[in-house]
């Protein structure tokens, strides 16, 4: 089932001679249970793509579709509701509100959407447990490590009905082992049905994806999917010798 679709999306900042073409006709889909990584040099359009996918920006041309809803056809209020209900975001830092506990942070989008506090907190606790954070609900962000905070952010991004997560270098500030632990949990959420778009500079992080798309000057120039027969990898000269 397709969760996110970009149809021939263009984004131009400015006009005339000073116009900057951030995206030039990008088409892609991300399905349930799929992790898509987006790689590219600085200025290639990665952040623009993520902002458009999350309804934080509007395309100059083309359509962005989330869960079958064309974002361009939504009112401002409708778009805000869709963002709260369907889309989660995780960034490198500044993810959590420091004055709220982990459970309150995770429950926040549900409560903002009108859900009863008790129900929202129960779903938040469940989401935290799925991120191996059972018992961390009452803790404030500054009482948690960077890796734990990012796992809270992922729990919030995918709490309740949300099935689309947009992540911008979510493990960029973490050490190698902690980053891998976070990606492993993220991968398990994808395997249980979430759709994730991961923007990253790090090939080692992109390697957790099912597909990697490469952006250059606002265009997708290449896509890397998995091999058909991965077991061959370890016996080929390029893999093991």
């Amino acid at each position: 089932m397709t969760i996110l679709e970009l149809r021939a999306v263009h984004r131009v900042h400015g006009a005339g001679q000073t116009a900057v073409h951030a995206l030039r006709g990008v088409t892609l889909t991300v399905g349930a249970g799929e992790l898509l990584a987006v790689m590219g040099a600085s200025g290639s359009g990665k952040s623009t793509l993520l902002n458009l996918a999350g309804g934080l920006d509007r395309p100059t041309e083309g359509d962005v579709v989330v869960n079958g809803t064309v974002l361009g056809g939504c009112s401002r209020r409708g778009l805000a509701a869709l963002r709260r209900q369907r889309i989660g975001y995780v960034f490198q830092d500044l993810n959590l509100l420091s004055s709220l506990t982990a459970a309150e942070n995770v429950a926040l989008p549900l409560e903002l959407d009108g859900m009863k506090v008790r129900t929202a907190r129960r779903l938040a606790q469940e989401a935290l447990c799925e991120m191996d954070l059972e018992g961390y609900g009452p803790r404030f962000p500054d009482e948690m490590s960077g890796g734990q905070q990012q796992r809270v952010a992922i729990a919030r991004a995918l709490v309740g009905q949300r099935r689309l997560m947009l992540a911008d270098e979510p493990t960029g500030a973490l050490d190698s082992q902690t980053g891998e632990a976070v990606l492993r949990l993220l991968r398990s959420k994808v395997d249980s049905g979430a759709a994730v778009v991961l923007v990253t500079h790090e090939a080692r992080h992109a390697a957790w994806a099912d597909r990697v798309v490469f952006l250059r000057d606002g265009l997708i120039v290449d896509t890397s999917g998995p091999m058909d027969q991965p077991e061959e990898l370890l016996t080929t000269p390029g893999g093991a010798e």
């Binding site: 090939a203 490469f214 290449d222």
Partner: peptide
């Protein structure tokens, strides 16, 4: 450069999948 990068990342995807 891009052809090599895509091929190498594809290998990394498979290594990661094996590990996972």
């Amino acid at each position: 450069v891009q052809a090599q990068r895509a091929a190498t990342i594809r290998k990394m995807q498979e290594y990661t999948r094996l590990k996972y």
